[in-house]
């Protein structure tokens, strides 16, 4: 029996993040999260296929508007996310410790997450220049190629980190104008929900990021066979799930990226190439008038 104290602490209800709101899973299911001693520290939503489908609808609805934001504005919003993360640092550290991290490791994970968000904030209006091209075609045309967002990206994030894996997965996707539905770590889900609160106070439009909690074993099939998802990113190492995702992706030619060899703690887990994985190259042609020359410009 716990002792009677002068003040009862208010415990947090961990819900999911869909379309800028914090509903419970529509399934009504949950799974308990225990601390090291076996005490229940939270009841976590065990999301269902229906939750995923709702989140996908929110992501699709938000995609056009997010892609149409200026690259500069997207950069500002990602920077704002970093600011909000910094302000809530102690809360994330406490959650990581509750989920089994040492104090030092917790602090390092939060700091890396903030820095990674700033890193991608800067890329928002720069990667296009690095990866675009004006193509010197032989005919009398102006021809250029630019990256454009792939669309709605379904992400199964790293299992072994609570915050850093999530940031590593989400930041390059939204930096490039995509929207996403993310499945957080099943065994370390606390920071995901708190991170959603950060997103919700960072001027990020509703639906750009949607965060679910639950089991990859149950959800990976739905993430990969949905016909209105354009790409799937997978940060875990289950061979059967990888195969199933790649098979399901063929239903509508989804782009699949398996980042099972990416250590999210490493510097190598951040680069503009992660942005480019969920970009499409669009090439545009236009005739150049050729006055005085014999050939037509068409």
């Amino acid at each position: 029996m716990a002792k009677i104290t002068s003040r009862i602490e208010i415990q947090k209800t961990y819900k999911v993040f869909i379309g800028g709101q914090f509903p419970r899973t529509e399934s009504g299911r949950y799974y308990p999260l225990n601390d090291k001693k076996g005490n229940v520290i939270a009841n976590i939503c065990l999301c269902s296929r229906k939750d995923f489908r709702n989140a996908e609808v929110a992501a699709r609805g938000a995609q056009g508007g997010w892609a149409a934001r200026s690259a500069f504005n997207r950069g500002q919003i990602l920077y704002r996310i970093a600011e909000m993360l910094e302000g809530r640092k102690e809360q994330f550290v406490a959650e990581l410790i509750a989920q089994g991290s040492s104090t030092a490791a917790a602090r390092q994970e939060v700091e890396r997450s903030i820095d990674r968000m700033v890193y991608y904030s800067g890329w928002c209006d720069k990667f296009q220049q690095v990866y675009s091209a004006v193509n010197p075609v032989a005919s009398s045309h102006f021809n250029f190629s630019v990256p454009e967002p792939t669309g709605v990206v379904a992400i199964i994030a790293d299992e072994n980190t609570s915050l850093l894996g999530l940031v590593t997965a989400i930041a390059p996707v939204i930096a490039g104008g995509n929207t996403c539905v993310v499945l957080a770590s099943e065994t370390r889900p606390l920071c995901a929900v708190t991170f959603a609160e950060v997103l919700n106070t960072s001027d990020l439009p509703a639906g750009v990021v949607n965060i679910l909690t639950g089991s990859s074993a149950e959800l990976h099939a739905h993430f990969s066979n949905h016909m209105d998802v354009n790409a799937v990113l997978y940060y875990r190492n289950d061979k059967a799930e990888i195969k199933a995702i790649q098979e399901n992706a063929s239903l509508n030619v989804k782009r699949v990226f398996i980042y099972n060899k990416t250590d999210v703690n490493s510097e190598k887990a951040q680069s503009p190439y992660f942005i480019m994985d969920v970009q499409e190259i669009k090439t545009t042609w236009h005739p150049v008038e050729n006055i005085g020359a014999a050939k037509a410009g068409y």
Binding site: N135, P136, V137, A138, N143, I281, T283, Y298
Partner: peptide, 18 residues
């Protein structure tokens, strides 16, 4: 779409991604 032809159509070139 990956290739857009404006005021032209069906043009191809080795330097132009398709």
């Amino acid at each position: 779409a990956g290739v857009i032809w404006a005021n032209t159509y069906n043009k191809f070139d080795p330097t132009s991604p398709f």
